[in-house]
Structures are given as C-alpha cells and as structure tokens.
Design a protein around this nucleic acid. Structure first.
Length: 852
DNA sequence: TGAAGTCGCGCG
DNA sequence: AAAGCGCGCGACTTCA
C-alpha cells in the first residue's frame, strides 16, 4: 500500500471540488493485488455497494481479487464535478491503475467511462470493451444509482455485469469461430449456386455503402450467410462471404449480375433469418432476390423484452458471451475487403446462434410465438413491400401549395411585427436595440448574433427563441404565467411559450393570437412541405421506414432510417414519418394516387374504446356498443347534463378527450388543464371532480378494471394483451411513488393499445393475401395505428372494398388463432378518393355495391 | 463543431 | 394525495 499512500494528496487544489470536500483525494479499497478494478463516480454514499458485490459474486466473480475506487477522488455532496474536473482528477486514477495493475476495469456511469475510456456517452458505449493504456480491459455500464432510480435499466445493467464477469473468468466462448468460403472465383460462384439450391435455411446479412434501396445511388458491398444445407449425411452448416461492389472484389463491375445469377436460388429459400431484416430484405429485393423473412432476431428480442437494447452486437455479447466484433461501417469502400468479409460473416454466424436461443424462448411461450409469427413476421414482410412501393405525391399540388403557405407565413410575421411596434409596415423593421435603447449591444435578442458559427441573421425568429421571448415578455410586457425548468446554474427557466400559456394570454395582446396561428404555418412548412419537396423519387413517391420494434406496445413507428438520423448522405433520400401528416386536406391532400388508381383509407371505428369495453366488461359500454350507440356522444350528454339530441359536434369532440383521458387514468387536475388547452373550457376544481365522478359512475366497470390491472402489474411486474403480447413494467418496483403510479397507468393502457395495433397489422396481412389470391391490384401504402391505407386500381374497387371492410371487422381469425372471442362489434369506416385528405366517406351499402 | 437534452407539436 | 397512453422530429439551447 505504500505506493498508494504516495499517490494520495490530501491538500490537492487542482480543481474546485476540494473547496467543499469532506475528504480530499480519497483512494479506493480492496485487494492490494487486484485482478479487477471497479470505478464509480464518487465515494459518496455508495448505498449500492453491497448489492453490486452480491451480484458480481453471484455471477462468479471472486471478490477477493477486486479493488473498488472512484473517478473523482474528492468526496462532496455540494458540488458536481464537470468533465474538466474528471480529466484533472484522472491523473490520480491513472496512478492508482499503474500501481495496482488490474487486468479488468468495470466503469460505472458516465464519469467513470470518461476517466477510463476517455469518452462520454454511457448509453452509447455501455457493454462495449475498451482498452486502457495500462493494458487493462475496460467495460462500462450505467451507474448502479441510475438503475436504482430507474429499475427499467436493470436488465441491461445485469447483462453488462455478466459480460464483465465472463471476461474476467475467461469463460470459454461457447461458439467456435466459423470456417467460411470467400466466393471469389467463377468455380466458387457456381458451387455457391448449387449449395443455395439445397439450402433449407439461410441466416444472412448485407453490407451496403451510400444511397438507398429505392434508387441507384447505393451499392451492396458484400453478402454473407450462414446456411443449413441438406446432405445425405444430414443437415450441414455452410458459411460463405460473397464480395460484391468493393475495389478489391472480383465482381466489382458485375455485382448486380452476380446477384441476379443467384437470385432464383436465393428467392426459393423459405427459411431466412436476418437482424433488422427489412433493411437487408429491401436491398435484396431491389436487386432481384425475392426474399421473404421467416425470422427476424431483432423482432424476436423485442417481443421477449421490449425494454432492452436490440442491437445484434449487444444481444450476442450478452446472450452468447461472444467477444465484441465489428468495424466502423462508415466508408466501407475504403476498408480492406478481407476485414469487411470477416465482419460480415461474424454477423451472420452469431445471428444464427442468436436465433437458436431466441426461437427457443419464444416457442416456450406459445401465445408469444403466435404473436411473433402472425403479427410480427407476417406483418414485416408486407410492410417491406409497402415501404418499397412508397406513397404517391402530387408534385404539382405540392408546388402550388408550398408558396401559398410561405406567403401566409410571411404575411403573418409582418403583421406580428407591426402589431408589436417593431415594424412600420412599409418595409422598415425597427431594430430592437432602437426600441429599447438601454439594451446593451451584446444583449440584442436577435436570433444568433453569431461570432463564430453559421450565417449571421438579422431577421427576427418567431419560434420559441430568445427573440420571441424578448418580444412577448420584455418588449410587450406580457405576464409570465409559466417558466421552463430551472437552468443548471439555478437561474429560473425561460418564460414558457407553450400553446396553453399562449391561449391564456390571447386577450392580453393582439400579437398572441397571431403567434398561435403562425405556429401552424411554420410547422406545415418545416415538418411537411419542405421535406416532402426533397424526398420524392423519380416516380413521385415518398418512402417511409416502418419499425415493428419501435414502440413498447407493439404499435409501429414510422420515420426515417436510423442512419439518416445521424447525417443525411448527400443525394440520398430520407424517409418521412407518415403517421403524423396533418389531417387538414391542404396538407394530407398532397398525397394520393396516380391516375387510374384510388386512395382507400379504412379506419377502425373507436377501436381502443371498444377494446376497453371488451376487457373491462363495463355494462354501459358493452350495451352502447352492442346497440350501435355513439359513446362519445353519450359521454358528452352525460357530462353536460343534456339530452343526446342537443349535443353539438364540438361537445362530442370534447367528450372524446374526456373519454380517453379518464379511461387511461387522468385525474381532475389534468382534466382542467386539457379542457382549457384543447377547448378553452374553464372548469373549477369542484366541477372537474364532479365530471370525473360522473364519468366513473356512468361506466361503473372501469375502476374495477383499473384495479385489476394494478394488481396484476404489482404482482407480476408485467401485463399481457388479450392475445398474449407482454409489456414488462419493471418501474413498478421503483421506490418512487410517482414512477410506480406511472407504471400502473401504463399497465392499464398497454393491453388496449397493443391489441388495437395488432388487429390492424393482422388485418393488413389478410387483406394483402386475399388481394393476391384474387388477383386484385391493391397495395398497402401504410398503417396509421388503427387505420390501413391502400392504393387500389379503380376497376378493382368493387371487389376490393368489401374485402377490406369484412377482413377488418371479422374477429373469427382471432378466435381461431388465439382462442380469443371478441364479443363486441368491431367496425371499419372506409374513405375513397384520388387523394388522402380529400377521400370521401363511404356508407356501408356503397362498400358492397360499388359503382364507378 | 457535434452531441445531447428540452420543448413543442404533428398523429393515433 | 395525485397521476391519461404511445410515438418522431424540428428548433433551440447547452455542453465540451
């Protein structure tokens, strides 16, 4: 220990922390000749120390070989170390490491990550392996205190600990390295073709560079697969790596032809696996290989636990205990080919073993396995085709409507400036510094007075910016009703410009309603029209990226590809979110169908409330749905105390928000807030309580159902949808009551939302199958949670419309596949037209008697 | 300059 | 005692 005492400097003043420290420069404790060093942030509390030791020792770590220390050596509760402090203090940790020479370092939390691996971003780097200059191996994970606050992080945390312990113990990697064939000659290509013709299962992965699957700017760099081949001696595994477009590839000029040469065999393989399969499938389909995915390991992992990281590498490291592998996949074309192929092969090789494990776990839960097959895998294969087809954009309409919106925005901004006294309306914009002469130049609230970065703007910025806040709350002296979160330095937050606040200020100054109106124009342009103009392809179609593992409930998410979120490659089209296109016909109406085709939108009518009725068995709701009554109308009448005949459309709309809110656990406070923000209705506390009580009196089965869900989640830590999709809610074990209550509300909402979305996906699958079988030219364009959108050839509408409606409303398949008898009517409303936004509602009679 | 975090708002 | 749920993304700010 003498070395350690030499390191310690109790009078250290290198950073600010010594000022408030109870102990300056506190070193660690434990083995004097440690194999393992555990580094946390600071020596405070460490109330998790005992738990951590227990977990590590349960996993097989010998604690006698461990030494525990921290990245920041000062011990203080009053100051938070900055990254600079951590880097300063790192010299002590480095000396500690040099003196003790651990072989493995477990870094707990971002501060320890920074001090041991020199990078920041624990959520990104956790569970990866880094090399410390001392030669030690560093594995970072989240801090135990973060896990304690948020038990949802626990599974990932334990997986990281397990990886660490396995590395320390040198637990043999149970998976041998693969022997693989590089297909680099004509003979090998021919023998690959023969092998593929007798392949019964193929777990594959493509590496790509640049561009996208729906245009010709991208290339496939290589294709690799682990195949199962039928031989007379039984099934054998065969692993290949096929270089395609790469400077060192023999096929670099003929890569598309090579793929087409193999396409007939590749297309015939029924049992295929990929990780995030739609990505690989789309590239393969684009180049002629008609892949249908049988198993997607990412989707399987998601179904087993919707809360964990689903990347191939973290999953394989945690589940298979394999060593990390991987290369930087940026600029693949400049990397050595053999490296790429080896990486590509390991992806498929480990994926093969991952599937074995995931499939076994899914099959062990028969209902979950059915959800996997009938919702996830059936659904994803259809969605791949929808994404590739894209949605048709009326470019002419977009080009007409964009300038209209731009002019409106310009006009309203000018009106705001005039009303705020910042412009004379004749082209002279007064500079704020002239309006407020005492304002120092460096305080000019003009957007971005940029000294070092970007262009210098002189125009005011009406979004929630310094300028807008200055204009409203300083220049016009409007009252500050709410503020954002306090700043890091303790200053109060910025005045809120949220919609609710602005609505409350509406009468205070004429610029407020103008500002509110402006938001819509701004949003339309920046989020919709402008991106659309960049995104359509040569067929005037826009592509989205649906994720089947994008939500915890099983809903799809829609948006751009993950790669594009980091940086959109030049000349590359990005995806667009098709689930948040504004409902106004002015915006939605830019999407439609090319001549000769019709846009058909079919919505489930009030699907979630019907499922609530089904699950809660509330007698009133069941009665209302069985007799075909309108539940929103009924609530409005009951809440307002008037007969249903006197309920206006607007009343009904308000009731909708009430229904959903109360059904999912909204309290009276939130009710007052929503009622005001959405509909400007003012309720007193007593009125709000009364409305809530009246609601639960009317639907007397709801609160008992809430109680059942609460009991379930408290007992099992998870809830299930009617067909067996599971939502894990580990937060129910949180010591924080608010966090627990949130988990209880989620336990109420999840089975409902989940079942609704699974119904929509299964309907889409069935509709597509029926269309194919009957030769109907109709293609699904996308799903919007409880609605399916189709593009259907005009002369096929008469046959197609009844299929859509009947399939969506028919619950017998649910009975047949899952044994669940949905005993309430499920209805679908259809709209038909040339455009999405302009589509006309179709009465049921017309669905069955379509006359063009 | 880039990443991360927050707010606000589009949809269901 | 009280507590709607589920997303993606643009714009802005802050941090390093």
């Amino acid at each position: 220990m003498t070395q350690l005492l030499d390191i310690r400097k109790p009078d250290c003043t290198l950073c600010k922390l010594h000022q408030s420290a109870q102990v300056v420069c506190q070193l660690g404790f434990g083995s004097k000749t440690p194999e393992v060093m555990v580094v946390s942030k600071m020596a405070n509390g460490k109330e998790w120390q005992a738990d951590l030791e227990q977990e590590l020792s349960d996993m097989g770590l010998d604690l006698r070989t461990a030494y525990f220390t921290q990245a920041v050596k000062c011990r203080t509760f009053d100051q938070d170390p900055s990254n600079g402090d951590i880097k300063t203090c790192k010299s002590y940790l480095d000396e500690e490491i040099a003196a003790l020479k651990p072989k493995f370092i477990l870094a707990l939390g971002n501060e320890a990550l920074l001090a041991t691996a020199g990078r920041s971003g624990i959520t990104k780097y956790r569970g990866r392996i880094f090399n410390h200059p001392s030669g030690a191996e560093v594995i970072p994970t989240v801090s135990p205190s973060a896990v304690k606050r948020n038990p949802g992080q626990r599974p990932g945390y334990l997986a990281d600990l397990r990886l660490f312990v396995n590395r320390v113990r040198g637990v043999a990697n149970g998976i041998p390295k693969p022997n693989y064939t590089v297909i680099d000659t004509r003979e090998k290509l021919d023998s690959l073709k023969r092998a593929l013709s007798i392949t019964s299962r193929m777990d594959f992965d493509v590496e790509t560079a640049g561009g996208d699957y729906f245009n010709d700017t991208g290339v496939i760099v290589s294709l690799s697969a682990t195949c199962v081949i039928k031989t007379k001696d039984g099934p054998k595994r065969y692993v290949f790596a096929l270089p395609l477009h790469h400077p060192e590839s023999p096929w670099r000029r003929r890569w598309k032809a090579v793929l087409q040469y193999l396409a007939p065999e590749l297309s015939k393989i029924k049992d295929t696996t990929a990780h995030n399969g739609p990505y690989d499938a789309k590239w393969m389909i684009k180049y002629g290989c008609d892949i249908r995915l049988k198993f997607d390991t990412l989707l399987g992992l998601h179904l087993l636990n919707e809360n964990i990281q689903k990347g191939l590498k973290p999953a394989c490291q945690a589940r298979l205990g394999v060593e990390p592998w991987g290369i930087d996949t940026k600029d693949l074309l400049t990397k050595p080919l053999d490296q790429i192929l080896q990486y590509n092969v390991l992806d498929t090789w480990y994926m093969y073993h991952l599937r074995e494990q995931v499939e076994q776990e899914l099959r062990a839960q028969p209902r979950l396995w059915k959800v996997f097959k009938y919702v996830m895998m059936d659904g994803v294969n259809e969605l791949v085709r929808s994404e590739m087809r894209g949605i048709w954009l009326d470019v002419e309409r977009l080009k007409e409507r964009t300038p209209i919106m731009e002019q409106k925005l310009k006009d309203i901004e000018e009106a705001i400036m005039i009303r705020a006294g910042l412009s004379d309306g004749l082209g002279t914009t007064f500079r704020p510094d002239l309006v407020e002469p005492e304002l120092a130049v460096e305080d000019w609230p003009i957007q971005k007075i940029l000294k070092t970065r970007g262009p210098v703007y002189a125009e005011p910025n009406f979004n929630a910016s310094k300028f807008a806040r200055w204009m409203l709350f300083e220049h016009l002296e409007l009252p500050v009703l709410e503020r954002g979160k306090d700043k890091a330095n303790g200053d109060p937050g910025d005045p809120s410009m949220a919609e609710g606040v602005m609505l409350a200020l509406k009468a205070n100054h004429p610029v407020v309603p103008l500002m509110l109106e402006r938001v819509e124009y701004q949003k339309t342009l920046s989020s919709f029209f402008h991106p659309y103009a960049e995104l359509y392809d040569e067929d005037h179609r826009i592509h989205t990226n649906f994720k089947m593992a994008g939500t915890v409930t099983g809903r799809l998410s829609s948006g751009k590809n993950d790669e594009d979120k980091i940086s959109a490659v030049r000349g590359k089209l990005r995806g667009v979110n098709l689930q948040q296109v504004p409902r106004s016909p002015f915006v939605r109406g830019v999407f439609g169908t090319p001549p000769g085709w019709s846009f058909v939108e079919s919505d489930y009518s009030q699907i979630e409330l019907r499922i609530v009725a089904f699950l809660s068995r509330d007698p009133t709701m069941l009665h209302l749905y069985k007799t075909g009554a309108d539940i929103h109308l009924a609530t409005a009448a009951s809440v307002l105390g008037i007969p249903p005949s006197q309920v206006t459309k607007d009343d009904r709309k308000k009731a909708k928000a009430v229904n959903f809110g109360f059904v999912y656990g909204m309290g009276w406070r939130k009710f007052i807030q929503t009622a005001f923000e959405k509909y400007q209705s003012v309720f007193t506390e007593e009125e709000a309580r009364a409305v809530r009580t009246a609601f639960f009196d009317q639907f007397s089965g709801l609160q008992p159902w809430h109680q059942r869900q609460r009991r379930l989640v408290n007992k099992y830590g998870r809830v299930q949808s009617p067909i067996g999709r599971i939502r894990h809610l580990p937060d129910i074990y949180s010591p924080d009551e608010g966090v627990r209550a949130e988990a209880e509300r989620q336990a109420i909402n999840s089975p409902v939302q989940s079942f609704g979305s699974d119904l929509a996906v299964m309907s889409m699958v069935q509709i597509n199958r029926k269309f194919r079988k009957k030769g109907i030219e109709g293609h699904c364009i996308g799903l919007v949670h409880d609605a399916v959108n189709y593009e259907i050839r005009d002369d096929h509408l008469a046959k197609a419309l009844p299929i859509i409606k009947d399939t969506m409303e028919d619950m017998s398949l649910i009975k047949k596949k899952f044994g669940v008898h949905v005993d309430i009517p499920i209805l679908a409303d259809l709209k038909v037209g040339r455009y999405w936004g302009d589509a006309r509602e179709i009465e049921p009679e017309e669905v069955y008697n379509w006359a063009a």
